[in-house]
């Protein structure tokens, strides 16, 4: 039943083990949160899953296919969508064109030279914008969007190739509280309706506790704990690194919000 199998992932930068022997699995239709303090290795982990950096050792198998050694564009073609911690969109295009571009690529038409791109897959793109509630902004230039809208747009782009796996690096960073909730609600709906698997990192513990099915806690590049929300909450090691003892999760949340 495991859809994504990560085994023994390690990567060092100049002698420092940024990620050290990390293993975990992700089932179909599961929402797994990757949490941990700053510098725990979350983003490094993400980059290795997505082919941006190559691990020193370890393996990442998606539905039986090895991802290590593949380039991001190849991993995308296997049905993996990604959103970035710092948004990356095509700033000289409209909102809709950003999604159209992803749809064009999904259809293997990035080298197409016989038709205009302007109206290609516009309807499908509009449908995706509908999902994230941005149909009204379809023809606005991307560079005038608010940050939260950019985050949502990234989700629409990631959905363009009907992903089986979504990798979301701090999807709600920089958003206001209501926006966060609605974005994560949206994500949870996708997981439920489409059976998509989601791996996401997040600082906002409210979001994490409310939506994730399972948690994976990283600290100093190693897996510290793993389990359900309740299990992780109760884990003294997690309390230790997050709180240094004493205070509650609520304070942790405000620290990072």
């Amino acid at each position: 039943m495991s859809f994504l199998v990560v085994e023994g992932l390690s990567l060092s930068f100049g002698g420092v083990r940024a990620v050290d022997d990390v293993s975990f699995t992700l089932a179909k239709g599961e929402l797994l949160a990757l949490i941990g303090p700053n510098g725990a290795g979350k983003s490094t982990c993400f980059n290795m899953l997505y082919g941006v950096s190559r691990p020193d050792s370890g393996s990442v198998k998606l539905d039986g296919n090895e991802l290590v050694g593949l380039k991001p564009r190849q991993i995308w073609r296997l049905g993996v969508g990604r959103t970035f911690q710092i948004t990356a969109t095509f700033t000289s295009m409209t909102v809709c064109e950003n999604v159209q571009m992803a749809l064009l690529s999904h259809a293997n038409r990035t080298f197409g030279i016989f038709r205009r791109a302007h109206d290609a897959y516009r309807d499908q793109a509009m449908d995706l914008l509908d999902i994230i509630g941005m149909r009204g902004q379809a023809d606005r230039p991307t560079n005038v969007l608010a940050y939260g809208d950019l985050k949502r747009l990234e989700l629409a782009i990631a959905l363009a190739n009907e992903p089986k796996l979504l990798l979301m690096d701090e999807p709600t960073a920089g958003m206001a509280q209501p926006e966060r909730r609605s974005l994560m609600k949206l994500t949870a709906d996708l997981v439920r309706d489409r059976g998509t698997s989601v791996l996401f990192t997040e600082h906002d513990m409210d979001v994490v506790f409310e939506h994730s099915h399972r948690l994976l806690v990283l600290n100093r590049g190693r897996v510290l704990a793993e389990g359900s929300v309740a299990e992780v909450r109760a884990d003294p090691k997690v309390r230790e690194i997050y709180l240094g003892g004493g205070s509650t999760y609520a304070s942790m949340e405000t620290n990072h919000a």
Binding site: P72, R73, R82, T89, T91, S92, A102, S105, H106, T110
Partner: peptide, 10 residues
């Protein structure tokens, strides 16, 4: 605009 995003969508 963004080679990172371009690679990420194939």
């Amino acid at each position: 605009d963004s080679s990172l995003r371009a690679e990420a969508i194939g």
